[in-house]
Design a protein around this nucleic acid. Structure first.
Length: 881
RNA sequence: GGGCGAUUAGCUCAAUUGGCAGAGCAUCCGGUUUACACCCGGAAGGUUGUAAGUUCGAGUCUUACAUCGCCCACCA
């Protein structure tokens, strides 16, 4: 088929103009939708990790967009029915905090505006900022099916959440009850274990004396003196000689004088602190266990805002930290204080607010998680789900095997309200509980005010977004999805939950592969943060350089699972690569001159350099395919770049000028077809990395399809891969490098054309047929082949590569002494390499045990080195002695 | 206390089943060669954290150690 390309290609790629235009064009043609593929095409589905609705795009979003869009575009080009389903997450706590902050700035508060108005304001906020992140994703080129966009709080997904909750309830997997939870006093809600982050901090360890019946004292240490007020026992080790006599006696809570027992338990570490432990079951997870074991009273001394309650006696109403100070002063006055010392321990803080959380009794809703976890463990264990990189499987197992029941209720306003109703019974206002999708009939029912943990709804994401619990055609066709691509930081929060929920409700794993990327960090491994001012804003980069360089840099900067340190100089480099791709296309485009036959010319018509570039290209395609199969996208991108920039552009494009400018029509034709084939293949390979430039450049090549986004992914043709051709070409290129070097050393004007005289010892390799390589690459205008090496010219610099010797006559410029020095250096270099090869080949173990192809390669290398050494020695003999 | 990752050129990072350690940036030298100065040609730069081991051969596999980072865990 003969095709012509667009002409008048612009000198530069105007990304600011082109990117939005191309994006709209793709969108308008429906190419982002799975329906664009053949009706019977195999589906490929990725559920986008829904960004927080209030968030603005940061570099992490850009990374997942780049990676997922790469996978999506690759599979689309492979002809699959591709669905990348986008959406946003209502992000309970995060969003509520933002809106509360906004209200605070207005001088109002959540309580003041009231429940209804607060939700109204939050929805407004969502409408205003929720769209922003979506449009920012579009700027990056995300080829999502926007018609299927979802939001975790929209009607369909809310329905899915209710259904899931009610089903779990009916299966007896949800219970409600008082438990010690991590309480966030500022947010006034329970948070799950995962939402608590602890880090080492400098605190004070307070030593004091616990009065014991009989006038004795038990020394005790604590980091939280205010919890003394909630003590319901003091514990010592049963074998502790120091305190054994006190076991069973009464102790008196300092200041409050409340009576509590002295108990014995092996849990107490005799070595630590004083060897005696105060027990506060109401505000410490360890002590809670201990309290259960010993039947201790459980006393709550805190209000929901972490001020002291009535159980704190005269301290009631004080903030927890004020109380700590006050109580300690009072104890000091009562002569109960021993000492204080600096101490480092882990302080639990809320992941969101950063405030210190308090273990506190509270009635919450829980999911009995073990049955779900068992299925999730089995799915990975049996290989139905693979995690990339594999090492995260171990982390995944460890977490699931030690999992605690999931506290799913949050005392927030923004979220899915738990579908439970209470009615008074026997004086208990919550004596009767009803759980169901619809409100119960009858009078006196009050709906639960708590909402569900955000991750409860995100756990359903892979199927709720496809219509579940309704049996939609989308659900039928697109569940399970294929790859879940997300950050390793939410492996537990999200990935594990999706796996559990998917297996539980759909009876099938939600995806077969989990690809985990690392965190993007600033130079020096520092975390990006606005306060440090070192954040790279993806939108600023897009404004300045376009989306393509950002995407290419993010993908080629890291390896799966590892954090990557983003280096801004790489962004510039990617930008320049994009220009390079454009310029290469420009060159080909301007040399087309009308119609071009698509497809490669017959192999017999191809000269060495053409065979070489095709061999290199198809080797590249095979490598890229291999790397894609093992999710090594970064390496694939780098190899494509290296091929184009270091092989195709500097060598083949240059050599092709000989045919294009001076060749016959037939020669021009052949070269054009090769150029078009190689560049076309490269643009296809690059499209998933840099969709905009490649799509635009592609229109300037002769092509069969309408759009690159829908074009076929290249297939490696092993028939074109030719080791012999590559080796020959490599020799010539080595010669080129040596000629350039020598010219440089003798300060020959780079533009000056020179003659060369060659002696080619090998009969099969014909340098003369490939003189255009030397002509174009190192300005050797005329090549004279001599039949015997002893016909060497005087006043010439000698260059030896393998079996070829090349003389550059440098009339008048040659300094014999210099030349001899140069030759001696060359000889030394060769000798060193030769010794290495000889040593290896002299080793019988190597020859016998190494892979045959490795041995053969070494033999070939040694033969070349020997030939070269012989020739250079001849040259030294004749010139220098 | 357990587990994981990292350690490679001055800096940021690669290196596909073990087979001559590579890029970008920075440095040095030379270039307005009709696609590209957003470029081209050349150079320099390394005992792959340390010490052993396995192997014909180790950046890659094993063990120990060091430094940094992360995750998990109930020492007040």
């Amino acid at each position: 088929m003969k095709v012509s390309a667009e002409t008048n290609m612009p000198r530069n790629f105007d990304f600011a103009e082109a990117e939005p235009r191309i994006y709209e064009w793709w969108l308008k043609n429906g190419w982002f939708k799975p329906e664009a593929a053949a009706a019977d095409a195999e589906p490929f589905v990725i559920s986008m990790p829904p960004p927080n609705v209030t968030g603005s795009l940061h570099i992490g979003h850009a990374l997942f967009t780049a990676l997922e869009d790469l996978m999506i575009r690759y599979e689309r080009m492979r002809g699959k029915a591709v669905l990348w389903l986008p959406g946003t997450d209502h992000a309970g706590i995060a969003t509520q905090l933002q809106v509360e902050n906004m209200l605070r700035e207005e001088g109002a508060s959540r309580e003041e505006v009231g429940y209804e108005e607060f939700l109204h304001r939050t929805w407004q906020w969502k409408e205003e900022y929720g769209g922003e992140i979506i449009s920012q994703l579009r700027r990056l080129g995300a080829s999502c099916d926007w018609d299927r966009e979802r939001f975790t709080l929209d009607d369909g997904l809310s329905r899915a959440v209710l259904q899931a909750f009610v089903t779990l309830w009916e299966q007896g997997l949800i219970y409600r009850g008082p438990r010690l939870v991590n309480w966030s006093p500022g947010l006034q809600t329970a948070v799950s274990d995962l939402e608590v982050e602890s880090s080492e901090e400098e605190v004070t360890l307070y030593y004091f004396r616990y009065p014991v019946e009989g006038g004795e004292y038990l020394p005790v240490a604590t980091t939280r003196p205010e919890t003394i007020l909630g003590d319901t026992a003091v514990a010592v080790h049963p074998a502790d000689e120091r305190y054994r006599h006190l076991i069973g006696r009464r102790a008196y809570v300092p200041i409050l004088e409340r009576e509590i027992p002295v108990i014995a338990d092996e849990h107490v570490d005799m070595e630590f602190g004083t060897g005696a432990l105060k027990v506060t079951p109401g505000h410490d997870f360890d002590d809670y266990e201990l309290g259960q074991k010993h039947g201790l009273t459980l006393l709550n001394i805190l209000n929901k805002d972490a001020s002291m309650n009535a159980n704190a006696g005269k301290y009631a109403g004080l903030d927890r930290y004020d109380c700590r100070e006050q109580l300690w002063a009072d104890m000091d006055a009562a002569d109960l204080v021993i000492k204080t010392e600096a101490y480092t321990t882990r302080i639990p803080r809320s992941q969101r607010g950063g405030e210190v959380v308090e273990p506190m009794m509270s009635t919450q809703w829980y999911v009995r998680i073990q049955p779900l976890a068992d299925k999730a463990i089995a799915a990975v264990r049996e290989g139905r789900i693979k995690i990339v990189p594999e090492r995260f499987e171990k982390i995944y197992f460890h977490w699931l095997e030690n999992i605690q029941d999931w506290c799913v209720s949050r005392q927030l306003w923004w979220g899915h309200r738990i579908p439970a109703w209470y009615r008074e019974k026997d004086g208990d206002p919550e004596g009767e509980i009803y759980v169901g999708i619809e409100a119960p009939t009858g009078d006196g029912w009050m709906m639960e005010r708590d909402v569900l943990d955000t991750w409860f709804s995100s756990g359903l994401w892979p199927f709720s977004t496809l219509g579940w619990p309704q049996e939609t055609t989308d659900l039928e066709r697109f569940y399970p999805t294929q790859v879940m691509e997300t950050g390793h930081d939410i492996l537990f929060f999200w990935v594990a939950r999706m796996i559990m929920m998917g297996l539980w409700f759909m009876d099938e794993a939600p995806f077969h592969t989990v690809y985990l990327h690392g965190l993007v960090r600033a130079e020096g491994g520092k975390k990006f943060s606005k306060t440090l001012g070192n954040a790279i804003d993806p939108l600023t980069v897009v404004d300045k350089l376009g989306a393509d360089p950002l995407r290419f840099t993010l993908i080629t900067s890291g390896t799966p699972g590892n954090d990557c340190h983003l280096d801004e100089t790489r962004l510039d480099h990617s930008f320049r690569f994009i220009n390079k791709v454009w310029q290469m296309t420009t060159f080909i485009n301007m040399n087309l001159d009308g119609e071009v036959e698509l497809g490669l010319p017959p192999r017999n018509d191809l000269d060495l350099s053409s065979r070489w570039i095709l061999s290199r290209l198809h080797r590249l395609i095979a490598n890229v395919q291999y790397l894609f199969n093992i999710y090594q996208y970064g390496e694939a991108g780098n190899q494509i770049l290296a091929f184009m920039w270091d092989e195709f552009a500097p060598y083949y494009l240059e050599i092709s000028k000989q045919a294009l400018y001076q060749g016959s029509d037939a020669q021009k034709n052949i070269v054009r077809r090769v150029l078009v084939h190689v560049q076309d293949s490269c643009l296809r390979l690059l499209h998933p990395f840099m969709p905009f430039i490649t799509e635009e450049a592609w229109t300037y090549l002769p092509r069969a399809g309408e759009a690159l986004i829908m074009a076929d992914w290249p297939q490696a043709d092993s028939g074109l891969i030719d080791d012999e051709v590559e080796a020959r070409m490599y020799t010539y290129l080595e010669l080129v490098r040596e000629v350039r070097n020598t010219r440089g050393e003798y300060k020959v004007d780079p533009g000056r054309r020179i003659r060369a005289i060659a002696y080619d010892k090998s009969k099969t390799r014909n340098l003369a047929d490939n003189v255009e390589i030397l002509r174009r690459l190192c300005n050797v205008d005329e090549l004279i082949l001599i039949p015997l090496n002893n016909a060497e010219p005087a006043n010439a610099a000698g260059i030896v590569v393998g079996e070829i010797t090349l003389y550059l006559p440098l009339e008048g410029m040659l300094d014999i002494a210099e030349e001899c020095k140069r030759l001696a250096a060359e000889e030394a270099k060769l000798k060193q390499q030769l010794e290495r090869s000889a040593k290896m080949l002299a080793n019988d173990n190597f020859v016998q045990r190494a892979r045959p192809d490795v041995v053969q390669r070494e033999r070939d290398r040694m033969n070349e080195l020997e030939a070269a050494t012989a020739q250079i020695q001849e040259r030294i003999t004749s010139l220098c002695q």
